[in-house]
């Protein structure tokens, strides 16, 4: 049996003249893998390419040893949950699972068995007779995971799965993903740092189609050690601070404002503090020239960021 991994070498992808992916090289092993990046970073393009929904311009991709060009074989071992999806609204949960099971080439007994097991896993058993259109956002996402696991894939690709979910559903969904990653590769694409922090050990940061970082979460945090500071200042100084500092957070207290910022060197009057993943992520964007300063309105709102 071939190794459970995904190898991407020098992957390039264009939309017309715009390059969406630039020499992307990644090796993804079993377990949860987080792909972090802003909107437009190329995450969905990479995910869709791995799911055979887009064709690469050049480079090499193998999924568990199978070249991506062999789309038929890839589809047998990949499960995909797109960012935006739904199902035929007139179908109920069981019918939708059954229909997709048929499309996955499962026999009747396999479909029954897998549907029952997966609905139980995603806690939708008691809703199996409910129309898809009647499901809440969270339930629909869980159904999405269930359908993606129908063919027991070696690779599960999940694109922005927690967008729009309330905190409780988000936590439940993260746990579900972590459970499914026990015996397969799960690639989680998101722009929400918290999702990555809670579920992934291995991550990559993608920006403007390029891989800015590849490594573990701990290594990412290490790179930001000594680069994150806090500083108290008068609120009137905010516009000036905005010009001078790469601010990642702030909160106000009376006439004082406490800013958290990134800097390669210690700044006067500032105290070094423990970085979090968000800081480290922002540091990579800053180094890549992609850091976007907070706007005036964001400064004016007060409170924590």
């Amino acid at each position: 049996m071939s190794r459970l991994n995904i190898e991407i070498k020098n992957l390039n992808k264009y939309y017309g003249k715009k390059q969406a992916l630039q020499n992307v090289t990644l090796c993804i092993e079993q377990g949860m893998f987080g792909l972090l990046g802003r909107n437009g970073a190329g995450k969905t393009t990479l995910m869709k390419t791995l799911a055979t929904l887009l064709q690469k311009k050049d480079g090499e991709i193998t999924v568990c040893g199978i070249p991506i060009e062999n789309a038929g074989e890839i589809r047998k071992i990949v499960g995909y949950l797109p960012q935006e999806f739904s199902m035929y609204p007139s179908m109920n949960v069981s019918e939708a699972m059954d229909y997709l099971g048929i499309l996955s080439g499962l026999s009747l007994s396999e479909r029954r068995e897998r549907t029952e097991m997966l609905l139980k896993k995603v806690n939708l058993t008691e809703h199996k007779g409910k129309k898809v259109k009647a499901l809440s956002g969270g339930m629909k996402r869980r159904l999405g995971i269930a359908q993606a696991l129908l063919n027991d894939p070696k690779v599960l690709i999940v694109d922005e799965p927690t967008a729009g979910l309330d905190p409780e559903e988000r936590v439940r969904f993260r746990n579900l993903l972590s459970e499914t990653a026990e015996d397969r590769i799960v690639i989680l694409s998101t722009h929400i740092v918290g999702d990555i922090e809670a579920t992934c050990e291995d991550i990559a940061i993608l920006d403007s189609g390029k891989v800015l970082y590849r490594g573990t979460v701990d290594q990412l945090l290490d790179t930001a050690q000594g680069k994150v500071f806090t500083k108290a200042a008068d609120r009137n100084e905010l516009p000036k601070l905005k010009q001078e500092l790469a601010i990642t957070g702030m909160h106000t207290q009376g006439k004082k404002v406490y800013v958290r910022f990134l800097s390669e060197h210690a700044a006067a009057g500032a105290e070094a503090c423990e970085p979090n993943i968000e800081d480290a992520y922002m540091l990579y964007l800053l180094r890549n020239g992609s850091y976007t300063p907070l706007s005036e309105s964001e400064f004016g709102s007060g409170g924590d960021r």
């Binding site: 055979t52 999806f85 997709l100």
Partner: peptide
């Protein structure tokens, strides 16, 4: 057009059915 209207195209495209 039903797949697209139901936002189901990609779920079907990625199946191994021909």
């Amino acid at each position: 057009t039903k797949d697209r209207r139901s936002k189901m195209s990609e779920l079907i495209y990625t199946r191994n059915v021909s």
